[in-house]
Design a protein around this nucleic acid. Structure first.
Lengths: 264, 264
DNA sequence: TAATAAATGTCGTTT
DNA sequence: AAACGACGTTTATTA
């Protein structure tokens, strides 16, 4: 069976079907050394040694080696790779016992991933040009921006003073005053708020508790409260305001269109 | 430019190089309908609407559609996909304005991912056979097993009574008695133990606190304590025992070889 | 470098 | 179906 590469495409991309181990080896070596994206599909087994260790017995999988040193081993199921190596790994490709062995290791973390193929269905060596911008909306930062733009989302009369205020334990999402001028600490979560979120708010509260004469409020903003959070919140005298990322995204969308209207 | 498929391989796998949109469309439709793994490489843009929303401007990427309804969009960098859909998505492939459009949506979560290709470098439709077992070692479960096998890993004289004991808030990793017969609750973490882990142990402690005459101990087992955890632990009168997953893995390895010795 | 918080977290398990 | 906890979580941010 002969390996095949379409010439019209070979300037930048090489695709080999059912190549021999030797041919695949040459392609992978060439691809990783030139920092190409390399996709290998075939029958393989995987060993990982590092923070944990794992063994994956033989089967047909898709392996992706990226120019930045990421490595992924994907089975035919699941979003997550069964084995992987984050960016910064170094690839070592070799022929061992007539099999194609690819090792990805990270020196600092002393982690090694080894994939061994005894039968290769496809090797693609791809020079991908990708500079397209990526925009993500409705993150926690977006919720913060929405409240700052429209403070009534929190409650009537709320006036923000500072966002991302640095304090000892970290950063206060929003600090402000309520309609009665009471200092108000706001902690925002885009997911149901856990006990951990309550503790986080409590830590920020404690920064201002050295002055017992001044009343302060702590408000946890999230789409909902997780199970255990309700009790802890009440015990600590903190408050909860339900607010979803979707509503915030809408507010920001209106803000953007308004800005455009004003601009023209 | 003619699309090409190696016949020798086409029983189970089809690989097309620089196919037209029409040819790619037929291949993707055929692949997803037969629950094959489909890999598409080409110039595309991506829109996502769901828990968040995102836009990715044109560029060359690798898209993987899996038989279980997972979808991945990988740029040439990073371990994580830039866009994705977890298992259970339904794929809808179409030609729109001479482009190849692939939509993956999950009805329950009301999430949609749409990838549109205007130029296709490769389409691979793969019938991958993968039933190999996956073994992960040195997990939290392994640490539990190691302590149960060699209780002195926790402390001299410790005697386990029950593992995974179900109580109101969840499951106690290990319950036992110390050398003085004092009831001891053990919570295990394979990573540096956070305040959340301390709270988890505390929740289990409270189950037994209704009898104030009986002394009980709570021990948090982990390779180390995270920053905030120390203070909370002390405040709650709980204890910490440093134990690494590696040491546990060694103990289990010795156990296995011993079992083997006994067997032969 | 180490710690902290966020994530479209994902994934398995149990209620 | 919903919730809880583990994860080789990864990643970005900041001290």
């Amino acid at each position: 069976m002969e390996a095949h590469a379409t010439k019209a495409n070979s300037r930048r991309n090489t695709i080999l079907e059912t190549p021999t181990v030797e041919v695949a080896y040459q392609a992978v070596i060439g691809g990783t050394s030139k920092h190409r994206t390399v996709i290998i599909v075939g029958n393989c087994w995987v060993d990982y040694q590092g923070r944990a260790s794992s063994t994956l017995e033989p089967g047909e999988r898709t392996v992706i080696l990226k120019p930045d040193g990421s490595a992924l081993v994907h089975r035919p199921t699941n979003y997550a790779p069964v084995n992987w190596q984050p960016p910064g790994s170094i690839f070592r490709t070799a022929i061992k016992d007539d099999n194609l062995s690819i090792r990805a290791f990270r020196r600092k973390e002393n982690e090694t991933l080894e994939v061994t193929f005894d039968r290769i269905i496809m090797v693609a060596v791809l020079d991908l040009r990708d500079s397209g911008a990526f925009y993500l909306h409705a993150s926690e930062k977006d919720m913060q921006a929405a409240i700052l733009f429209q403070p009534a989302l929190l409650e009537e009369g709320f006036r923000p003073i500072k966002a991302e205020k640095p304090v000892e334990p970290g950063f206060i999402d929003i600090m402000g005053v309520d309609k009665d001028n009471v200092l108000t600490i706001v902690e925002i979560k885009r997911n149901p708020a856990t006990t951990e979120a309550v503790l986080q708010l409590q830590k920020y509260m404690e920064v201002f508790k050295n002055d017992p004469t001044r009343r302060i409020r702590g408000i946890l903003v999230a789409p909902e409260l997780a199970r255990g959070a309700q009790g802890l919140l009440a015990k600590l005298g903190l408050e909860f305001k339900a607010l979803s990322p979707e509503v915030c995204a809408d507010v920001l969308k209106r803000k953007r269109s308004k800005t455009l209207t004003e601009f023209f």
